Amino acid sequence: MTPGPEVLGEQQGTGSETTAAIRILIADDHRLFREGLKALISVTPGLQVVAEAQDGQEAVLMAERHSPDVIIMDIQMPVQSGLEASRHILARSPQIGILVVSMFDDDDNVFAAMQAGARGYLLKGSAPDELLRAVQAVALGEALFAPSIARRLIHYFSRPTRLPPTLLPELTEREREILSHIAQGETNPQVARKLDLSEKTVRNHVTSIFSKLQVSSRAEAVLRAREAGL
């Protein structure tokens, strides 16, 4: 039996009183995943799906329109990433709990999600009861992470303190590294070989860089990098 997700923080409320259903917005670009979550939540007392979004921009609009208690947020989505959407949403409605449910378990995405204000991080493929527990915990103001993510966080914060990066802070450390290679005129295959990554992973990072910097070409991205002193 796999261990349940780790809860960081104290539970708020006794749970003995009758409370309104937790209102949930599902933001994910995969329709089958959204439908599966809806089916799971529909048979769970105390939870209610009030809206869906298939990209980050739509998530921002749905959050503003429906004021959910919890948003189940994917990271990689078209139009606007889940991380960018989270920042926009929490800037206007800091009381909303963001629970990231993603297929990515690398440090860059985990810490970027935390920086964006997410209260929890689970991996797609987590057991249904783990997901439901995470939704309830995040609604109560707790921070909850999958066991593997929690161990990574503990290891990271047990290391000596290091200064946060100041150049292009909206990018992750890996994205800044890839952008620096792009600024040297390297192609995606060249970057992939140098960093020991797949070309698909590099392409995904480049797409994320373009989205965060709000540029549409490598030349514009390079210009932004040089202006920032990267």
Score class of each variant (00 low, 15 high):
V110I: 15
T18Q: 15
P94F: 04
R65W: 10
I89W: 00
E17H: 10
E52L: 04
R34F: 08
K124M: 02
L122Q: 01
V50R: 10
A143K: 09
L132S: 08
A137F: 05
G117L: 05
L123H: 03
L32S: 15
Q95L: 05
L122A: 04
A53E: 14
I24R: 06
G141F: 03
A53H: 12
A143P: 05
S42N: 13
T44M: 03
E142A: 02
P94V: 02
L140N: 15
D74F: 02
G141T: 01
E58R: 02
S102L: 01
A20W: 09
E17D: 13
L140A: 11
R119K: 08
G46E: 09
A146K: 03
I41A: 01
S102C: 03
L47P: 04
A20P: 08
S93E: 13
P128D: 12
V101F: 10
L37E: 15
E130T: 11
D106F: 00
I75Q: 11
P45I: 01
R65P: 05
S42V: 05
E142T: 06
A53Q: 12
R23Q: 09
A91K: 09
L37W: 10
Q80K: 14
G141C: 01
N109K: 01
S81T: 12
G125I: 09
L99G: 04
V50H: 07
G125N: 07
V60C: 06
V138P: 03
R92Y: 05
E142I: 10
G46P: 14
I22P: 04
F111P: 07
L140S: 11
M62Y: 02
D74N: 11
P68D: 14
I26L: 03
L25G: 04
G125R: 07
L47V: 10
G97A: 08
H88W: 14
V138Q: 09
A21Y: 09
